[in-house]
Write a protein that binds this DNA or RNA. Structure first.
Lengths: 344, 344
DNA sequence: TTGAAAGCGATACCAT
DNA sequence: ATGGTATCGCTTTCAA
């Protein structure tokens, strides 16, 4: 089958006996064209199998309809939910999400952002507030709204939608200390790689210090600790080193579950022998036995709120209004107390 | 901050004292330009903060650099892995994945495909072999390579990369029957929504019949059964109705885990009282206690193989070779026997 | 409501 | 190695 050149507007125009310009208008909902020519043109288009070329349309109208988005990983339910929320929030706007994955690497993020900039997106969304110097310059000079999500950076590039990861870590630490635990640990990964995760760890450690508890059980391994197996391994290490550990917060619910399985294998009961908490409000935290205490981050809502920011910034009826001011949308987090930290 | 128009190639050319054409060449790796002018131009570009407009480049060169991909959901580790594999396979090609989510709805897929076609992708990847009539027409007339993944349709549109979901269901059924189980159930969701899931169920049922076993324990609910909670609910229903059930295959490892938790809550031991198997090779299947028997689908590999098909089809040195023939790449699945179906 | 002309920002192609 | 010119397929703008 030879791959032939697709038909153009001119082809449709010729067949319908009108000018290309009329075709252009007839194919758009809001343009003026009589119903009769519209019908004629639609038929001609159908007959030819014509599909609008939005590449050309974008070049001419200076609107690509793209929203560029970078997230650390696609294998992560939290970010997946954010993308779902964003997609749904943009549903009726005609905006297309251009999704890229940084693999928790800001150098890779820089590459992605540069590649995305070439596509002339109408807005750019990046995860987190830590970027390479060059990447910050790209974003600042992009000429379109920039939204940082999943954090509320102290020096945002422009808009931000998220929550304070430091405070999130503090909240969980305070909760565990309030429960009466003394020997408290934290399981997390390389701080350089995952700025948000390390912020949570930092907040967690702050509270332990403030409340006069030891911080020697902060188990930060070189490798990331995101999945179940990594959580299990980290827990093994932690308990071997500090058998008197009474409670642990894990970087995510997945590693918390892995840690919990590790305890079960050792004959340690959760929460009676050791309490475990996670982060992220993953499905597993609600379905595991025992259910895992977690901090829900409002992942889906981050997406929907980001969509709102984008749409309000792009609305053309606000060129001079205060809507153009940098937005800072705080998403509520929620500590869900579950069985894994509540001995009966 | 006023959002001003970004600089163009002409701007760079003017500043560097050359023609736009020279800029175009200097900015590409393979074009001929002297090192001295290259340097001059790069400096001018940097100074202006120039970023190539690939929209315009695409219009002119008739290459957008897009590969359009539709998957049912972003909240699914299997599809996520496929996208990871695809991305990595396309890494060095300069091709950008344009990702869309159908929500397991072929009408939504049709809308997405039409929207994507407007972007003039250089290849299109769709999940599954079931599409609306109109969507099939779109794809067939797209003029670019079309790859259906996660299945091997009997009437493929063009290329396909996947495995037989019917055979996958058969494999698990045969395994369970071989283990000596008689009262075997299946937990899955609405067949209309998820064609691949229902294929697996169909294969599963075929084997039960062929081997003289009852198929009355095929629990197919109206709603999808994909997550843990749904799996738990379905298991409760199944056991209430058929307390003599000895083994169950679930539509996914997530529902298998939910089902297992449901058993645990009832005091049923897995696998001693009831055996449970899943599908998909999710992390949870290897980390749960007991570990869950599953059928690994080669999700990541589906992505990498799809990338290979795309690249070979797009290679311009094969206009007339047999490489243009429809490819049908079979991905190996693997039944991983684990504790959840192996009483000691 | 419709049409003609002039780009949008780049590359292909042909010269030099 | 570099430049000039003609598109690429559409929309904007201005007229009719």
């Amino acid at each position: 089958m030879p791959r032939s050149k697709p038909p153009t507007m001119s082809d449709v125009a010729k067949l319908a006996g009108v000018s290309p310009m009329t075709v252009s208008r007839a194919l758009r909902p809001n343009a003026s064209a009589s119903e009769s020519t519209r019908k004629k043109i639609r038929e001609a288009a159908d007959q030819l199998g014509y599909v609008l070329d939005s590449t050309a349309a974008g070049l001419s109208s200076r609107k690509t309809g793209f929203v560029a988005v970078t997230i650390p990983s696609i294998n992560n339910a939290n970010f997946a939910n954010t993308i779902r929320g964003l997609n749904e929030g943009l549903q009726d706007s005609g905006l297309q999400v251009l999704l890229g994955f940084t693999d928790y690497n800001i150098k890779e993020e820089e590459r992605l952002v540069e590649a995305f900039l070439r596509r002339r997106p109408e807005a750019i969304v990046v995860t987190g507030g830590v970027h390479t110097e060059r990447c910050r310059r790209y974003l600042a000079a992009s000429g379109v709204p920039v939204i940082e999500i999943w954090d509320l950076p102290s020096s945002p590039i422009e808009h931000s939608v998220g929550f304070s990861n430091v405070k999130a870590g503090r909240a969980m630490a305070n909760y565990l200390v309030d429960k009466g635990y003394k020997n408290i640990g934290f399981i997390g990964g390389n701080t350089k790689q995952d700025a948000r995760g390390s912020d949570r760890c930092e907040g967690f450690a702050e509270v332990l210090e403030e409340r006069g508890l030891s911080t020697e059980r902060l188990r930060i391994s070189e490798e990331p600790v995101r999945n179940m197996a990594q959580g299990a391994a980290a827990m093994d290490y932690l308990i071997d080193k500090h058998p008197d550990t009474q409670a642990v917060m894990c970087a995510s619910d997945l590693s918390a579950f892995g840690a919990m399985m590790s305890c079960q294998r050792r004959g340690l009961k959760v929460p009676e022998d050791i309490a475990i908490a996670g982060f992220g409000g993953y499905d597993i935290s609600a379905n595991a036995i025992p259910q895992i205490t977690t901090l829900e981050a409002g992942d889906y809502q981050i997406g929907t709120e980001t969509a709102k920011v984008i749409l309000s910034q792009l609305a053309d009826d606000n060129d001079e209004t205060e809507e153009r001011a940098p937005q800072r949308i705080k998403i509520a987090t929620q500590l869900l107390e579950r069985e894994s930290t509540s001995p009966k």
